[in-house]
Design a protein around this nucleic acid. Structure first.
Lengths: 355, 355
DNA sequence: TTGAAAGCGCTACCAT
DNA sequence: ATGGTAGCGCTTTCAA
């Protein structure tokens, strides 16, 4: 006996009630063929009456496109950051605005399981890959199969792929420059976790490159530390920095999740921000403003990055032949209350910025 | 070999190469009919060679199920909280473990657009609704069409629906109790935004109920304030509370996003936490630990809630006839550093530290 | 144990 | 301007 999802109205039923053929209903809906105003209205009335909506699976099968985009993000093991949520929000919003849905997939650079489903079973027309590594198996795979995709962050050979990324190198350099301008000579850099670094996360790598470059160019002293993505790690790291390099007066951090702990460690050790130690870096605006004193930082435009990723992806889907485009973002550093002149011993002035 | 290139491979091609019928290939894959070991292996070899994977749309159409679940969350206008991200992570993980995909949809209680796509076009087999209101049009609609769904939070008539929720009322009462035990007599309650309250967000409502109930039962004094979901609002609110009720020594907050600002406002006004003012409430563990001093709070088990939501939903999908189940969670209050005994002079008068 | 074929609901081509 | 119909790729009956 046949399955009876009777509730599901289909195009045939609409056609019958409107006394037209199924194709006419289809065309009335898509507008891909002229339909006389009279029949169009009659069809529309029936559709409204019956609450008809075309079945997405059937349409996808017939059209050969799902109008769904995949969003591949890392498993929770590595804790999510606030900016990732904003990013997801941006993606979902932009996709909806362009009449696409977003399918979430959790897969790290190694795992192929969930990933196979997305592209192998053609559940999506294209995909966005988060938390990219410099060498990334998923990227290689997509390139091989010429499956449309966009990465958040760049791989080692950035010209082959479409991506949107923060210019971590420049951003960190600017942070160092800012501290240097304020008279700080001894800096520390708080990076993402050692595991991420070792795995080749490009943002972690390039941030560190920027730090070391700037330190050299400006003739400063500076040490880079990896740090796990949580408050406790930040707190311990602050203690360690002060123990190993008590002369440190400026800190640059790209590790948003550890920020609260970093502050706590600093103040716990008797340092006042920004009187004794200035802190700056890259972070989501919400975190930058949640801490006291609020963080002078390059605010990650996560929401916008989501939007851009969608646009780049739709571009790829629409035209596979054009070489992929990229977008490198350099949000300005927003001055807040966590940076000020270096203490007199290492600078000249002593006037904290902001309050 | 041209392994993945061949994603355009379909079941017919596999059948031909294996010299069997398409149905045999299908059965070999699904195991719904015995297939001789010899042919099974032959088929498998061809599948491996060609990298065949069944097309999801076609399968969904034929089977009448998409093996996709919808996750409906509110547009970014109302700021996302950290716990929402954890929740999404939990949902995605649990779904993947059960061989389902998750489709994101952004729709608030009013908007039907994106929402229609999910359920109307049968893109998903069931849906999870976040940020529910006591009276929620989406819920009514799903009930009417008997579409399987689960809500995060309860509607006014909770017995009709499947849901997972925090017991905000009890949790807030416990917070008040905790402060009361520490000798605090004058409390303030920091709720979600006025807009959310007015819109009938159940968590905001019940939290406030719990506060007022506990205040009455314990014979305390207390005032409830709505607060927008950001640091600045928290800061302003702290100032307002101290201005209107300087005798306040205990604060209960369910507004995670404003927490950092609340702290800043308190300390900015010369109050030390927890010496002068104790703070406690409901929050994601990461936020509770990011602030200094870390927040004594009932930690929202967002990840677990995501998992539970998936389980409840699959239960609904599997069996529409059984009455819906619910789960009310009451995570314990984790003692951290933001609460302490009330100041000795508490009750009559308070001398600000900075005077 | 296997094959043939009828759908699933929609789109788009070929007619008229 | 409209109708008829052959697919899209898979599942699942019905037959052998």
């Amino acid at each position: 006996m046949s399955r009876l999802e009777a509730s599901a109205v289909n195009i045939g039923e609409v056609a019958r009630r409107a006394k037209v053929s199924r194709s006419t209903v289809s065309y009335a809906l898509s507008g891909k063929r002229p339909v006389s105003e009279a029949t169009r209205q009659r069809i529309q009335r029936v559709i409204d009456e019956m609450g008809y909506q075309p079945n997405a699976s059937a349409r996808a099968l017939a059209r050969g496109e799902t109008r769904t985009l995949g969003l591949v993000f890392p498993p929770a093991g590595s804790h999510y950051t606030d900016m990732q949520l904003d990013f997801i929000g941006g993606v979902a919003e932009a996709a909806a605005a362009r009449d696409y849905d977003v399918l979430m997939s959790m897969a790290d650079a190694g795992e192929e399981q969930s990933f196979q489903r997305l592209v192998g079973e053609r559940r999506v027309d294209g995909a966005i890959l988060m938390e990219i590594r410099l060498e990334d198996a998923r990227v290689d795979r997509m390139l091989r199969t010429s499956f449309p995709f966009v990465t958040i962050g760049r791989v080692a050979r950035p010209d082959d792929t479409a991506w949107v990324d923060l210019d971590h190198l420049t951003l960190v350099r600017r942070c160092v420059q800012h501290l240097s301008d304020l008279g700080h000579r001894h800096l520390a850099f708080v990076n993402r976790s050692e595991a991420l670094l070792r795995a080749g996360y490009e943002s972690a790598r390039r941030g560190q490159d920027g730090f070391e470059l700037a330190i050299r160019q400006l003739g400063l002293r500076g040490v880079a530390y990896p740090c796990d993505d949580d408050a406790m790690a930040g707190e311990r790291l602050a203690e360690r920095v002060l123990a190993e390099h008590p002369e440190t007066t400026g800190i640059v951090t790209v590790n948003e999740a550890s920020l609260g702990g970093l502050y706590r460690g600093l103040t716990g050790a008797g340092r006042t921000i920004p009187r004794d130690v200035s802190v700056t870096g890259i972070a989501g605006a919400r975190w930058a403003e949640a801490v006291t004193p609020s963080l002078t930082a390059a605010d990650v435009p996560a929401h916008e990055m989501g939007r851009i990723a969608i646009d780049l992806l739709l571009e790829r889907i629409g035209d596979q032949r054009t070489p992929p485009r990229h977008q490198l973002l350099m949000p300005p550093i927003v001055l807040r209350a966590s940076t000020g002149s270096a203490p007199v011993s290492s600078g000249d002035h002593h006037a904290p910025a902001g309050s």
